[in-house]
Design a protein around this nucleic acid. Structure first.
Length: 284
DNA sequence: TTCCAGGACCCTG
DNA sequence: CAGGGTCATGGA
């Protein structure tokens, strides 16, 4: 176990963990409990200080800074996307919301599971998948449930589970896609880390070759797992918000919305997406 | 009971 | 390229 304190300027822990980008966090009072990589974390925020307890004593400050994306100058990002009164309000209502740097593999599978699904059930699937195939990690050694979780299972483990093993988790028609992705990554036919060096379009082309990964899921993985901020995932919520604000309520295709947003908001369109998403869902 | 969920995919026109 | 049906599952 290890305790750390991080300086967290322009950061709102609650907004960041509850805006829907990550499925691994649970709140209890002032504390958030969750799994990042192979560690279980307990996190709270007071002002611009972040208090973190980690199950892993080898955890480094830089790794957490990276996960919470604290090295990004948020004020510069916000300045670029703050282009009209609608975005201005969305930003104002979710000040300090940052896009996390999540594990790519976990991100890929989680968003594959998100297809035609709702958030509580996606969380449940990720949790069940981890509980069945991941490793148990405890915060304090003695590990009452609240202080323990499960790491996300490695590609070779999910490959080993087979489609049948995956279906035991009740992920339904997504099982075959998850299995295929696990097989490709485990056998090194697909190297996720090599995608990081590619440009947005090339990276997206590679991801969408996977069955079960279309435009939206690929954009989520690129945004939340690879830090490619031009990615603009268009889901039902974003479409409602975007059509209302920027298309006079007219029905528009996802592609048109995405391309408009990338041109209008620029290289940080993905940040605009997150603020609009959080805003749109908050006042539904 | 019926509807829908951070979609993807396949088939038509 | 756009429009429609289908795909498991479970909660409202």
């Amino acid at each position: 176990m290890k305790k750390l304190e991080l300086k967290a300027k322009d950061f709102n822990l609650g907004c960041t963990l509850e805006c829907g980008q990550a499925f691994r966090w649970a709140r209890d009072g002032e504390f958030y409990y969750g799994v990042v990589g192979n560690r279980f974390l307990k996190v709270s925020q007071k002002g611009d200080r972040l208090s973190i307890e980690s199950s892993d004593s080898a955890v480094k400050e830089e790794e957490l800074t990276s996960y919470f994306n604290l090295d990004l100058d948020l004020s510069k990002v916000v300045a670029q996307i703050d282009r009209d009164r609608h975005m201005h309000e969305a930003i104002k209502n979710h000040k300090g919301l940052r896009i996390l740097r999540q594990d790519r593999w976990e991100c890929l599978i989680s968003y594959m599971l998100s297809a035609y699904n709702n958030i509580p059930r996606i969380k449940g699937l990720v949790e069940n998948l981890s509980a069945k195939f991941g490793n148990r990690i405890c915060l304090n050694g003695y590990a009452p449930l609240r202080y323990a979780g499960f790491s996300f299972p490695a590609p070779r483990v999910l490959k080993g589970a087979g489609i049948g093993g995956l279906k035991d988790i009740r992920m339904g028609f997504r099982a075959s896609s998850v299995y295929e992705a696990a097989s490709k990554v485990a056998s090194n036919k697909l190297d996720l880390s090599s995608i990081a060096g590619k440009n947005y379009q090339n990276a997206k082309d590679i991801l969408t070759e996977l069955r079960g990964v279309g435009d939206k899921v690929a954009d989520c993985v690129l945004l939340f797992g690879f830090g490619m901020y031009e990615a603009f995932p268009v889901d039902v919520w974003i479409r409602r918000v975007m059509e209302k604000i920027y298309f006079k309520g007219r029905a528009v295709s996802n592609k048109e919305i995405r391309e408009f947003a990338q041109g209008y908001f620029g290289p940080y369109a993905g940040y605009a997406q997150e603020y609009l998403y959080a805003w749109g869902r908050a006042k539904r």
